Computed example of a mutant assay.
Amino acid sequence: MKNKVSFWLFPIVWMIAGTIGIILIDTLFRQLTERLEGVVPLIFTLVMGILAMLVYKLTLTYLARRSTPEISRRHAGIETVLGVLTGAIFITASAFIIIALGGYSFQWAGSGNTGFVLISTIETALGAAIVEELIFRGLLFQAIDQLGGKALALAVTSLFFGAAHLGNAGATLWSAFAIVLEAGVLLGAAFLWRRNLWFTIGLHFAWNAMEGLLGISVSGHSAAGLFTVKVNGAALLTGGEFGLEGSIVPVVFSLLISIPMLIGTARNQRIDGGNPRHFES
């Protein structure tokens, strides 16, 4: 019995077990919702999110043998809202800069399916945000943190996050590297700074939802948004077929956000006296 407990306590083991459980739930609900229309897929996605968080909590509670303050309901609402606002401002500002530089021009799509576009965009963005944040910032980050510290965890999760997008349409080595910096580092820094997953889920959700609503490809995935976007100029400015994430603009902008977050994290650690239970809230 002792050997079995030791086996499940090993960070890579509980990380893989939790990841498999979350992916299985996500896959099952994707199959259930692919033929459904209207608000039902969004409701199913919310149910999927609850079950995925339950798997996450059970994994860390019974396999990793640790508490889960990072998904505590305390301040969950305000942290999610702050994350949504951060993500919305980040994407909107990046898009406006590219517009000002002549890279994008937008036109109202004029579709009669505005409600469908809103619901489907929210459903897709929400599902991706919950699943990816639970896996990357929740399981993988904290497993690597336990093995080698937070700096290594930030580096490894950022690299894996970039590599995970290499198979997307229009992806290049540059776009993967851009994802490493603008998404991997930013979301990892946000997790360290806010000490919870609600903020990163909100940020990730707003990021994808704003791109989708603007009609910009989301990491290579085309979006039937409220606008049609005309792309002009070099891919380094516009992101090309990969979308906004392949542009140099959000890369620079994200670093301008991430650095203060990491400075704030270091300051919090000094105030806490180097307490290893960093994610307690």
Results as ranks from 00 to 15, higher is better:
residue 215 G to C: 14
residue 146 Q to A: 15
residue 173 L to Y: 13
residue 229 V to E: 13
residue 232 N to L: 05
residue 102 G to Y: 06
residue 164 A to W: 01
residue 232 N to H: 14
residue 225 G to V: 04
residue 171 A to V: 00
residue 206 A to R: 06
residue 124 T to F: 10
residue 158 S to V: 06
residue 131 V to A: 07
residue 116 F to E: 11
residue 117 V to N: 10
residue 207 W to A: 01
residue 115 G to T: 03
residue 230 K to G: 06
residue 192 L to Y: 12
residue 169 A to K: 02
residue 123 E to R: 12
residue 142 Q to D: 09
residue 136 F to L: 07
residue 167 G to T: 02
residue 107 Q to E: 12
residue 145 D to Q: 13
residue 160 F to I: 13
residue 211 E to V: 05
residue 218 V to A: 12
residue 196 N to C: 10
residue 105 S to L: 03
residue 156 V to D: 05
residue 208 N to L: 02
residue 106 F to D: 08
residue 177 F to M: 03
residue 196 N to L: 12
residue 211 E to M: 15
residue 172 T to E: 04
residue 158 S to F: 08
residue 165 H to D: 00
residue 180 V to F: 15
residue 179 I to V: 10
residue 184 G to Y: 04
residue 161 F to M: 00
residue 112 G to D: 14
residue 111 S to M: 02
residue 214 L to P: 01
residue 158 S to P: 10
residue 217 S to Y: 08
residue 182 E to H: 11
residue 168 N to Q: 00
residue 141 F to L: 09
residue 215 G to K: 14
residue 178 A to H: 03
residue 187 L to C: 12
residue 123 E to T: 07
residue 162 G to S: 03
residue 173 L to I: 07
residue 230 K to F: 11
residue 153 A to G: 13
residue 175 S to F: 05
residue 155 A to K: 07
residue 196 N to P: 14
residue 188 G to K: 04
residue 226 L to N: 09
residue 223 A to E: 11
residue 186 L to R: 05
residue 100 A to E: 08
residue 116 F to R: 13
residue 120 S to A: 12
residue 102 G to W: 08
residue 119 I to W: 09
residue 152 L to A: 15
residue 111 S to C: 07
residue 116 F to G: 10
residue 222 S to K: 04
residue 155 A to T: 08
residue 125 A to R: 02
residue 210 M to K: 04
residue 105 S to K: 09
residue 100 A to W: 08
residue 180 V to L: 15
